[in-house]
Simulated assay, not measured.
Amino acid sequence: MLRTQFEEELLNLHNQFYEMGMMVSKAIHKSVRSYVDHDKKLAKEVIERDELVNELEVELERKSFEMIALQQPVTTDLRRIITVMKASSDLERMGDHAVSIAKSTIRVKGQERILEIEKEISDMSDYVKKMVDNVLVAYVKTDQEDARLIAKMDDRVNEYYESIYYNTIAAMKANPETVVSGTDYLDVAQYLERIGDYVTNICEWIVYLATGKISELNSNRDEGPAEYK
């Protein structure tokens, strides 16, 4: 009887994590849409809804600690709970970066814009969102092979960032009136690049869940689960 109840609680934990992930995925998509389309209303919606993401993370952490304390789970079950705790913290940070992009939208005044770079930022965000959606599916299936492939996608995110960086710097040098918008482009691209890093963190937690081992999947990052070795 107790075991069945524990498994139900574990399933609820996983479902809530997935729900949180979908909310973050939508937030990333909407924040970049709002930025490229100058849609301040949509940006405000992203900022307001972030409260729900934060509440879910706190709730997941509370439930996880409760389950560890009351049920004293062993091996696989404990790994599952730890994975949810760690990965939900990564999701929450991804949500924070989506909020930062939305705040950039609200700051934007009628400055000189560079449409080619905005197109590249939009493409980068579509790619990052695909990574987020893929990692949620890999998490649900505890698919470590998929997790390893998704982590490799982060190389492309870094390429997007470099391209946006160099194109923006060149545009700013050529036309000083683009300096304000250009600085914002660099910020937004960096937020997206960080989101890619957090997706890779979650990939590492999926591998940990499947194998019990913590692996560093992408050496191009400077933080992640490897620090818990």
Rank of each mutant, 00 (worst) to 15 (best):
V137P: 12
A138P: 14
A138Y: 15
Y139L: 11
Y139K: 01
Y139E: 04
Y139N: 03
K141T: 06
K141N: 07
T142M: 12
D143Q: 04
Q144Y: 12
Q144T: 11
Q144E: 14
E145V: 14
A147L: 00
R148S: 05
R148C: 02
R148G: 08
L149A: 12
L149R: 08
I150N: 08
I150G: 01
A151F: 01
K152H: 15
K152Y: 14
M153A: 12
M153Q: 08
D154Y: 02
D154Q: 03
D154K: 02
D154G: 06
D154M: 00
D155A: 15
D155M: 13
R156Q: 08
R156T: 13
R156H: 14
V157G: 00
N158S: 01
N158F: 10
N158V: 01
N158L: 05
E159A: 05
E159Q: 03
E159F: 11
E159T: 07
Y160M: 05
Y160C: 07
Y161I: 06
Y161S: 10
Y161L: 13
E162L: 15
E162I: 15
E162T: 14
E162R: 15
E162W: 12
S163W: 06
S163C: 09
I164T: 02
I164E: 00
I164P: 01
Y165V: 07
Y165T: 06
Y165E: 03
Y166V: 07
N167M: 13
T168P: 09
T168I: 14
T168M: 11
T168V: 15
T168W: 06
I169C: 11
I169M: 10
A170R: 13
A171C: 04
M172K: 04
M172I: 11
M172R: 00
M172Y: 07
K173Y: 12
A174V: 09
A174G: 03
N175P: 03
N175Q: 02
P176D: 00
E177T: 10
E177W: 03
T178F: 07
T178P: 03
V179K: 02
V179P: 03
V179F: 12
V180C: 01
T183V: 01
D184A: 00
D184N: 06
Y185S: 10
Y185M: 05
Y185V: 04
L186D: 06
D187Y: 09
D187V: 09
D187R: 01
A189D: 06
